[in-house]
């Protein structure tokens, strides 16, 4: 946005540039304020281009929990059986870990549940009591990593 305005204002005086800079700072500040009040979502992402969904293998947090950077959220199981005809199920497991501090506010899934791509799995906010009436403004920042099968997973233990 700054570049866009800078190009359009390239012939203006230094006064105009100062006005623009002030406007930009105000805009940035308002965005930070809005950021403090936002609801975030976790929608099931496309981890593998061949996947059509994933199973919630583990849930590591409960609504109301204050979560830190590095907190584990979910383990997911991605089964490519529908895309590849194999008798040995091509299942991979992934861990979803937070990259920003938030409060988990709402879980829309249960352990063992299959989710579709893009499905809203959970809602977060950066204040514990923030209203959930507003729609998520963006996806939560997270890391996805392949993990080894373990005893806590739904697949192979409950299934």
């Amino acid at each position: 946005m700054f570049v866009h305005y800078a190009i359009n204002l390239r012939d203006d005086s230094s006064l105009s540039i100062a006005r623009f800079a002030a406007a930009y700072l105000l805009l940035d500040l308002s965005m930070e304020i809005r950021d403090l009040e936002m609801i975030y979502g976790f929608r099931l992402p496309t981890i593998n281009p061949h996947m059509s969904g994933a199973r919630i293998e583990c849930i590591y947090a409960e609504p109301g929990n204050a979560l830190k950077i590095g907190s584990k959220l979910f383990d997911l199981g991605v089964d490519l059986s529908s895309a590849f005809a194999q008798e040995c199920p091509p299942i991979s497991f992934f861990r979803v870990v937070l990259r920003e501090p938030v409060f988990l506010r709402k879980l829309n899934v249960a352990r063992g549940q299959l989710c579709e791509l893009g499905e809203l799995v959970a809602l977060f906010s950066n204040e514990a009591d923030e209203s959930l009436s507003a729609a998520p403004v963006r996806d939560i920042r997270l890391t996805v990593a392949g993990i080894i099968h373990h005893d806590g997973l739904w697949t192979g233990n409950v299934a």
Binding site: I69, G70, S92, R95, R99, T143, A145
Partner: peptide, 13 residues
């Protein structure tokens, strides 16, 4: 290696 990961920091694990 896996192209399906997006690990930006191993300190999370």
């Amino acid at each position: 290696t896996s192209g399906y990961e997006d690990i930006s920091s191993y300190s999370l694990f």
